[in-house]
Nucleic acid binder design. Structure first.
Lengths: 414, 414
DNA sequence: CCGATTTGTCAATTCAGTGGACTTATCCGG
DNA sequence: CCGGATAAGTCCACTGAATTGACAAATCGG
């Protein structure tokens, strides 16, 4: 976004290049800017507000807004009487229910479908709890497609802007196959192709992404109206995922695999990890390690751990403290490396944050080089309830918001 | 760069915003694109070549090229007869000797000045070896300014595009004070203000940056015509610095402090580090640790270590192996986190790479999650001879190349 | 009801890039 | 030695997007 002439084309094995800018690029850019302003303002802005905020003239904003309204991407609210002098403003909002952004998720203990409209409101949703460890991809994808089909009917002709699937593993470049999902026990599965065959979506593109990255995207959206736009997101589940967010955007890395913090080295003499190495963070702060350390069965929900800790159970507190310290060490490494000043703890860590924080803070104090010069914030995630599912749908929404002209011309073709 | 309407303005404590695009933004963008093409093509391109490469029309490229030539940023070479049919092409190059980009460096064992022109050729250079541990900033900056003054005279009226200073420590945001340079023993020093007072440059801005980040910038320039544009750069010195390079640009982080890998945790039971924590990478792979492990005095040059290793010295090989393993562990963490597929070893590691590589590769094999799906490259730095000094000057060059219209209008004001 | 004020629109202007035709300059084959 | 083929660079009329300043619309306050 914000690239003149569309995104820079990173030609395979070539020097990074930028696209030429023509008159149409101006339109695309400014159209995107106006739509972003409508989408992200705390309350619906008027054309004049947008002109003020963007630096464009009212004339230009008017023309652009009209185009957005005509395309069904924005809408005018009834004018609101502000009891101030002057002609009252017509507030603009993102148009709801004009398109469907589909988020899907395959995770270790549930499958999910969530459909948002452009405004981010939920149009439909379905989550099936289950146990998907060591499953066969074709079967699970079939189940997911079966969940989709009644929802597809209920959407009744609403144009589908795209589909994005959250997966608990390494996804190659946002489209390529799922390389490795250790807890599902999947490897080199072309999830997009499997879904394409079963969902009957025609040529609607199916994107794949890592679950933690998408949860971070949902969190970035939740924090949009705060001052926090760059942070490191930690997603505590069976495994520990993470994502780097800069100015509200996921920094995905060269292959889309960035943010993997679960196998940070904590102690070379530590326990052997499922990945084959020794002393990984996951062995100290993963869900299994937390529960085992507290003497709980691995299938118990983490809520029980919080209950035990609140009751003062020694083994629970000890397990949480150990996990907190280990998390702190790994996060200190990460913060020194990528220089962010905020850490957001999601997944199972959010409800446990009070017990984890002392250990984390102690390690950050000791190990982050610049901790004396700038504050470091650690907080629980705002986005709740299958955040990755929301993030997946938001990714589709974001694509339309970032390039409304693309969507408009795409729509006008059908 | 590549942002329509100039860089996005990240307003303090506001949501990230983008600038409005007007006609002039088109010019700026395309002018920058044409200049970048001239600067980065392996051999001097003609107007027609540039049109081909950028996607602009020949007409447009001609107009833009003429503007660049008029501004003294580009120049036409004598036409070259290619023995092909058709009118011969006039090759365009970056104009040499039309402006001066000044790189300065304060490091632990030398001070340096290096002046490049826009084409990247060295116009002047002066390096003074010395021992600057535990020095007083005013004295050292005075020395540096004294080195500058004869060079300034020799540049005889060439316009100075900017000054950038490489420092071995945490620099706040590229301009703010130097927060901490442990080996110089400096803390919260406003180096820019000190230099401004002594260099008599008028209102020419003085930027500051971390030495490792700038060395990485030089390396990125050296690798420009290769296929490598994203990598993690490790700068082995007394301390161990690093930098993240993505598509040829330094990813500096929220405060400009990213890339610090020297205090990655290797073993919580390890030796106490100067930073106060235990088991940092620096204690295993820093210059002092390497020499001490090999039984050498700390003031010896690392060349002696390579000699000992080549002669088969057990303690030298052991020290190098230990360092290699530790580096491998830290790099595995970093690669999992930021997802790059290339590591460049600079500073003292470049000449020692053959001895370090086995340990590094072993750890990367064991700990990088995706190592089975994509190759990881580890190589020695190409840029030699005070790379940070070159990087500092290149940063100034880069600013002009990225925004030629800014430079042109700036120049026309005087 | 009228002036002040603010929103939204209209018309004329400016400016950058495009597309097609044209000029310039070379190579090559007869 | 000349003319056709070929490619580079330029000229010119045109298009499209944003700007500027004026104007119409709609409200508030006295």
């Amino acid at each position: 976004m914000a690239e003149l002439g569309g995104a820079a084309t990173t030609a395979a094995a070539g020097r990074p290049r930028v696209n030429p800018a023509r008159q149409a690029s101006l339109r695309e850019h400014n159209l995107g800017m106006v739509l972003a302003e409508i989408a992200h303002s705390p309350n619906p802005p008027s054309r004049a507000d947008i002109a003020q905020l963007t630096g464009l003239t009212r004339t230009t904003v008017s023309a652009l807004a009209d185009q957005l309204i005509a395309a069904g991407l924005a809408a005018e609210l009834p004018i609101v009487y502000s009891r101030k002098a002057g002609r009252p403003a017509a507030p603009l909002v993102i148009a709801g229910s004009t398109l469907a952004a589909v988020g899907l998720e395959v995770n270790v203990d549930y499958l999910g479908v969530r459909v948002l409209d452009l405004a981010g409101d939920v149009l439909a949703e379905l989550v099936t709890e289950g146990n998907y460890r060591q499953t066969r991809p074709t079967v699970v994808v079939g189940e997911l497609a079966a969940m989709w089909s009644p929802i597809a009917d209920s959407l009744a002709g609403l144009p589908i802007a795209g589909v994005c699937v959250a997966l608990p593993g390494l996804v190659h470049n946002g489209t390529g196959p799922l390389r490795l999902a250790p807890n599902l026990h999947w490897q080199d599965v072309d999830v997009a192709a499997l879904l394409q065959a079963r969902m009957q979506l025609g040529d609607i593109p199916i994107a794949l992404a890592n679950e933690a990255n998408l949860a971070a995207q949902a969190e970035a959206a939740a924090l949009r109206h705060s001052d926090i736009h760059s942070f490191f997101y930690v997603s505590g589940e069976i495994g520990i995922g993470g994502a780097i967010v800069r100015s509200g955007e996921i920094a995905a890395g060269s292959h889309g695999w960035s943010g993997e913090i679960g196998h940070t080295l904590i102690d070379p003499g530590g326990p052997v990890c499922g990945c084959g190495a020794t002393g990984c963070l996951e062995q100290y702060a993963g869900k299994d390690a937390l529960l085992r350390g507290a003497g709980l069965e691995l299938i118990r929900p983490v809520g029980e751990l919080a209950v035990l800790a609140a009751a003062g159970s020694g083994s629970a507190l000890e397990s949480l403290d150990r996990a907190g310290s280990a998390l702190g060490m790994a996060l200190a490494n990460a913060i020194n490396l990528i220089d962010v000043d905020t850490v957001v703890l999601g997944g199972i860590y959010a409800p446990l944050i009070d017990y984890l924080l002392p250990g984390i803070v102690e390690q950050l104090r000791a190990r982050v080089l610049w901790q004396a010069w700038a504050p470091i914030w650690v907080q629980a995630a705002q986005a709740q309830g299958h955040a990755a599912l929301t993030g997946a749908a938001l990714k589709v929404v974001g694509r339309v918001l970032a390039d409304p002209s693309g969507w408009i011309s795409h729509q006008s073709l059908r």
